[in-house]
Amino acid sequence: MTRDAIFEKVRDVLVDALAVDHDEVTPTATLTGDLGAESIDFLDIVFKLEQAFGFKIAQGELFPENVSQDPEYVREGKVTAKGIATLKERMPHADFSEFEKDPQIGKVAEIFTVDAIVRFVERKLGRA
């Protein structure tokens, strides 16, 4: 499956799960900021990706959990170097270059972009 074909399928999943328009789903759009996703939508997206692509996604595989509650990873409202390293390890599909410049915990959702999902799917399908 080509990257464009993956993107098309991811877009269909997000249009369905988040009730957004097709043209709102761009590679750089963030799930929570631009597309209005709430916490339960992440589970919905995981379920719909599993159905669309025919693979299983383990809990925390696409969207890591229990990072923001850990004092080792978050200090004074910022994600620590160790926290960023852990996130990078758990989310090799995400791009952290912007976030690293100002790693406020409130901005962590900005790494969940449409492109991060596309790259996640690519890796799962063994193409990247």
Partner: peptide, 10 residues
């Protein structure tokens, strides 16, 4: 049931 796992179901 469409899907069910540890955290929820659709």
């Amino acid at each position: 049931i469409q899907q069910i796992d540890k955290v929820g179901a659709s």
